[in-house]
Nucleic acid binder design. Sequence first.
DNA 1: AGCACCTGCGTTAACGTACACGCAAATGAG
DNA 2: CTCATTTGCGTGTACGTTAACGCAGGTGCT
Lengths: 345, 345
Amino acid sequence: MSKIKDVAKRAGVSAGTVDRIIHNRGRFSEETADRVRKAISDLNYKTDIRARNFSLSLKCRIAVLMPFPELNNDYWKLPLEGMKNALEELSASHVTAEFFHFHEYNHDKFQNMIRNIRKKQFDAFVIAPLLHDEILKLFDTLFDDKPVVFFDSDIESSPRYTYIGQKSVEAGHLAAKLMNQMISGSDNKILIITTDSGNEHLTDRVTGFLEKISFKTETIEIPVNPDNMTEILEKIRPKLGSEYNGVYVAYSSCHYIAQMIEEQGLEKKIPLVGYDLVPDNIMHLERETISYILTQRPIDQGYLSIKTLYKKIILGQESASEQLMPIDIITQENLASYIRMREIS
Amino acid sequence: MSKIKDVAKRAGVSAGTVDRIIHNRGRFSEETADRVRKAISDLNYKTDIRARNFSLSLKCRIAVLMPFPELNNDYWKLPLEGMKNALEELSASHVTAEFFHFHEYNHDKFQNMIRNIRKKQFDAFVIAPLLHDEILKLFDTLFDDKPVVFFDSDIESSPRYTYIGQKSVEAGHLAAKLMNQMISGSDNKILIITTDSGNEHLTDRVTGFLEKISFKTETIEIPVNPDNMTEILEKIRPKLGSEYNGVYVAYSSCHYIAQMIEEQGLEKKIPLVGYDLVPDNIMHLERETISYILTQRPIDQGYLSIKTLYKKIILGQESASEQLMPIDIITQENLASYIRMREIS
DNA sequence: AGCACCTGCGTTAACGTACACGCAAATGAG
DNA sequence: CTCATTTGCGTGTACGTTAACGCAGGTGCT
C-alpha cells in the first residue's frame, strides 16, 4: 500500500500539495496536478480511510423525525429498535442520534418540534415523511445539503438522499393469494379493514388485495383515532363466520379482530391476514387466531437508515437511492425464528 | 470525551501505564491499577476505536473453507455472494479473504487443500464444516486460538467462535403446514425427496415435515451424485398427479420435479414445496410450478460470517455464539421483492 | 559487598492524513 | 522601478493509541 508521501516523492512535490490536489482545495497549477494524478494512478494510491477518519475525527449527528413509538399499536417501536441497534454498533464511530417524535395529525406541535431542531446542529436526517408538505419546506430552510434519508414512505419529488421502504401493492397481492388459498368454495365474502388516514401504504395494500382476491369483499374504514372503537367492532362481531368468511386488515390493528374471533370460538375457521409483528399480533399468531402476518422488515428499515448515513458521512460510500425491503410471510411455524433473529442485531 | 492522557493525569501516572493496565499486559502494581481503573470510571473513559485502529493498523485475513460454489445446484453461490458483499463493504478496513473450495466427499483433495492453507498466514476462518472429522482435527494444528466461524451447519462439540445458521426441524414443520393448506380432501399421498448424503439438515427437514404432515407420505432417496438421474425421475413421472398429490423436496433440487410437472401439464395442480433460491428454482417459482420455496437466508449467512469476524478482530466486539436465521417463505408474489433486496448490499 | 535480575513505570516514535501557516517567486499596478 | 498582491508549494503539527525501549530502585544470590 503506497502512501501519500510515496505519491509526493514520485511526482516531485510535497505531501501537502498532493493532498490539496486530491481534495481540490487551495491553490495548485494544472501541470503539477497532472503529474500528481499520474503518480496516484501509477502507484494505485488510495487514501487510507482509517488515517483519514482518525485525522478528521468526523462526527455524524443524526436527527430522527418519526411518530411517537407507541402509535399504531406500537408499530413505530420496530424501526426505532433497528435504529438503536445500529447506533450501538456504531457508537465507537461517533455516530449519534437524537429522536424527535410527533403525532401524524398535529401540525402545530410538529412546527414546535422543528423549532427545537433548529436550535441544534445536525449532520444528517432520518425521517418518516408522513407530513409531506411540512417536510418538503424544510429542504430549503433546515436540511441545506445535508443528507436526508426517508424511511417507511417516500416523497419522490424531493431531493432526499435515499428511500428505505416498501412496495405495498405487491404486499396486497400476496395477502390475496394467501387468502384465496385458505378459503375453499366460491360463495364467500372477505371483510377488508383499513383507516381513513389517507396513508398511501394502506390504500396500496387494499388496491393490491382487490386486484388478486377471488371473492366478494366489503371494506370498512375505521377512523384513525376512533372514539367509538368498541361500537364499530360490535357491529362486525355478529357477521363473523356468517357473512364474512375471512378478514384482511391492511395495517397493524389486526389483533382487534383476532380477539373477537377468539371470543366467538372461531379460531382457525376464519382466515385472518394482517400486517406487522407488533406484540398483540405476535400473541395471536402464536394462538393461531391470526393466520398470516406480512411485514416489510421495519426493524431492518431503521437499522439501514442509520447505517446508510454512516456509510455516506464516515466512510464516504454512496448507497442506492432506493432500498426496498422484501415482503416476509410470518405464521405460527416461523414466528419463533423471526423473533430469535431480532437478538442478532 | 476524555483521552488516555486525562486518565493518566488523574491517576498520577503516564499514558503508557494506563495503556498497560487497560490491556493487562506488561508490568504494573495492583495499587496503581486500582487508581487507574477508578480514574477510568470517573472520567467515563472509552478508548477511541479510531485512534486504536489507526495505531494498530489491524488486518483481518480470513480463510474461507466451503464447497465449490456450483455444487448443490449453485446453492453455495449464495453464501459466497453474501461474503463478497461484506468484503467489499469492509475493504477499507483491511478485511480480506481467500477462498478454498472442496467437494463434500473427496477427502484426499481436502487434505491437499489444507496443506495449501498452512503455507499462508490467516487471522480467522469461516467454514462450512461438512467434513466433521477433518475439520475437528484442525483446531489443534491450524486454527490455534484464531476465531473460527461455522456457517450452514455446526459442530457443537468444537471450540468454534460462532455458528451462523439454521434450525431445520422448524423448517420442516412449516413446509408441512403449507402443504396441508394447499391440499383438500383426505385420501392423498405426498412424495418426499431427499438424498442419502447423511446431511443433518436434510434429515431434520424430513423429520419436521413428517411430524406435521396430515397425509400419507412416501420417501425417495436420491444418491448425492446420481449417474442415473433421468432413470430415477422417469420412475416418478407417471405417478405425478395420480399416486402423488404433492411433492416435498428437502433440498435445492426441487426444480427437477418442477420441470416434470410442467412437461406433464400439471402446473398448479400438484403443490410443490422446496428449498433455496437457486436460479432454476427462481424460474419455476415465477412460472408457479413451484408453490413455495423456503430459505434460511444463505446470503445473509455469508455476509454475517465475515461481519462477525470483522467485529471481533477489528472492533473488538463479541458476538453471540449462535446466530440463527429466520425461515423465509417465498412464493411468486414476494419473489421479486427478495431478488431486489439482494442488490442493497 | 558485588552482581544479576526483577519490578514498576516513564518516554518516545510511529501510524497516514488533513490543514493552517508562511515563504519565495511571479505578477500586476502605479 | 517599486511595492503590493497573488500564486504555487513546502513545512510542521495535530489527531489518540500502541508498544518498544530503557531507567531507577529494589530484591536475591553467592
